[in-house]
């Protein structure tokens, strides 16, 4: 697959001396949904702002659809739509006026039919003549998306699109993002809702302290890093793990009512059979069994908080 955005050795040091990005390299494939995950202050917004031309890079280069974002900024920027994290709108302008302004600003001739389509897709058509200050928060956010789509971009950046958005609107937004992808738009979204990345993304990049820690396909990431857990709910409490089970990777729950078994689902022999057999042999009765797979969130927390390094993951 060809890269539609190519970030090479990008660094950013703010005037205050704060280094927001450290030698970042990243390729975004055409037509994918890429989720950039990271805690607050990790450098997500700085990275996006540089690509979109709002912040000057300190070092390195970025190509957007093959155009250098500094030297060839006109061509690069005309391909990109940005929905920033903060809602910033002109209070007194109408919805229609605001979206039309954005289209003109990006150098596109007037096209009322297209703007109508964008507004309809985002359920803003009824509000086209309303002043922006009369809109609800969710509508304003959709307006920001409409503005970003007004010039028919190939690449769409959504910086924390669902921060502070209710569940229904979040579902709608996901639906809309998928539709855009079907139309061939590449979508890069930043989020710190892991659920969002898990739900939407084709690939996930994790950024922390200005460095890209990991980039991988979501499914592979979850497979490779995902651990499975089997919980055995006991019929009677247990003070300690019995000797015959001591060689298995088991932990006893605090109340002594459950045994938790960690295993790797990708292994041919998961060891579950052996565990159950052993329990049987020693007449340890259990009421229930349940297994769960670790979520992207668990993986993320492992990576970011516990500092699991790349070598450990590669193995």
């Amino acid at each position: 697959m060809s890269a539609v955005i190519s970030v090479n050795n990008l660094s950013k040091i703010y005037e205050s001396g704060f280094q927001a990005l450290k030698n970042v390299n990243l390729d975004i494939n055409a037509g994918e949904i890429f989720a950039l995950l990271g805690p607050n202050g990790a450098g997500k917004t700085t990275l996006i702002s540089i690509i979109c031309g709002i912040v000057n890079p300190s070092d390195g280069a970025v190509l957007a659809d093959g155009h250098d974002i500094v030297r060839d900024y006109r061509k690069a920027r005309s391909k990109i739509g940005l929905v920033p994290q903060e809602i910033a709108t002109d209070a007194f302008e109408s919805v229609w006026g605001s979206v039309s302004f954005s289209r003109g600003l990006f150098g596109k001739p007037r096209n009322d039919a297209y703007i109508e389509k964008v507004l309809r897709d985002l359920s803003l058509w009824d509000k086209k003549d309303s002043k922006i200050m009369m809109l609800s928060g969710g509508m304003k956010r959709r307006l920001m998306i409409a503005k970003a789509l007004s010039h028919e971009p190939k690449i769409l950046f959504l910086d924390e699109p669902t921060a502070g958005v209710d569940v229904e609107l979040r579902r709608d937004m996901w639906e809309m993002v998928r539709k855009l992808r079907e139309q061939g738009v590449t979508i890069i979204l930043t989020t710190h809702y892991i659920e969002e990345a898990e739900e939407m993304a084709d690939r996930v990049g994790i950024i922390n302290h200005g460095e890209i820690v990991l980039v991988d396909e979501k499914t592979r990431l979850m497979q490779q890093l995902g651990r499975k857990q089997l919980t055995v709910h006991l019929a009677a409490p247990m003070a300690a793990i019995p000797a015959p089970l001591s060689n298995l990777p088991l932990t006893l729950a605090d109340d002594g009512m459950a045994l938790v078994y960690d295993y790797d689902a990708n292994q041919e022999r998961t060891g579950i059979e052996e565990l159950l057999r052993t329990l049987n042999q020693h007449n340890i009765e259990f009421k229930d069994l349940h297994s769960r797979q670790s979520s992207l969130e668990d993986i993320f927390v492992d990576l970011v908080k516990n500092g699991v390094n790349r070598e450990a993951m590669a193995s």
Partner: peptide
């Protein structure tokens, strides 16, 4: 002041 300048800065304008 309001933050809407982001749009002008990210637009393909000189």
């Amino acid at each position: 002041f309001s933050g809407t300048i982001y749009e002008v800065l990210s637009a393909p304008v000189s």
